[in-house]
Design a protein around this nucleic acid. Sequence first.
DNA 1: AAGAATATATCTTATAATAAGATATAAATG
DNA 2: CATTTATATCTTATTATAAGATATATTCTT
Lengths: 141, 141
Amino acid sequence: MQLDEMVETINEQWTDIYYLLHYVYDDNLSHQAIRLLQYIEKNEKATIGDLAKHLKVSHNTASEHTKRLMKKGLVTKRRSRTDERKVFVALTEKGRNVLYRHTRLDRDKLRKVLENLSPSDLEIIQKAFSVFSEGVKQCLR
Amino acid sequence: MQLDEMVETINEQWTDIYYLLHYVYDDNLSHQAIRLLQYIEKNEKATIGDLAKHLKVSHNTASEHTKRLMKKGLVTKRRSRTDERKVFVALTEKGRNVLYRHTRLDRDKLRKVLENLSPSDLEIIQKAFSVFSEGVKQCLR
DNA sequence: AAGAATATATCTTATAATAAGATATAAATG
DNA sequence: CATTTATATCTTATTATAAGATATATTCTT
């Protein structure tokens, strides 16, 4: 079918783009650590329990994950004022940068690629990403 | 500047799309393991030495990485016929699937999103990914 | 106010991943 | 035949990951 073919093609192009444009990571963060940072970025009021549920690990493991990330200066903790049992975990500036370096496209490489494209191609890309990301958000939220 | 702004916007949309469409991984592969599988996929004649160089680890570590992945059934090894000191590492079918589940967009989720878009939007997305991935390959190879 | 429930932290223990040095082996090269 | 190259293995060390047991503080319930 037409649509299945498009799914395949886009997936190949997607991974090609990421493979060639991703950052070269210097640090050595684990998969779980990235997932944690990612979840925290998208959910600003994430608690230890939320993280445990999301990563499907026990609460003590989530607590230790957070401790490790805090030791590395990637997240901070602050108690909730309305319920002082709860602890909100948030990204530090450094944490945000590290996360970006593990999930985003390398800014300089991306810029160089875009510089070599025509204005009309740029317009199409802009429009496509806008339509695509909107479609994703509407469809899955 | 206009282009820097576009770089930022695309990066945000890029990570939003990936965050919402990526597979839910059941296995727990390390970052290094994924990098290895990814390199092997893109470079079919990858040797242990190549992997060591690419991951910036010692040859014995690369050898052990490969051994672990082989034990999990994700890669195979075969000696070079022209130079029997060399060992080529290749992905198994299972390895390819695991890699896809860690780098690609979830096929079913992606399909559902595309189903909800208009034919003209689909066309724009198709064109954009084609232009973008081509641009990346030309610019960085 | 007392007891139950909730949220997190810590301690202990166990396993696996990661990494490198030392050493070994086999093949190719000069 | 000695040297270099490519990989494998053995040993050792560190760190990550994870869960159970237990502790503590806070909130909720009655």
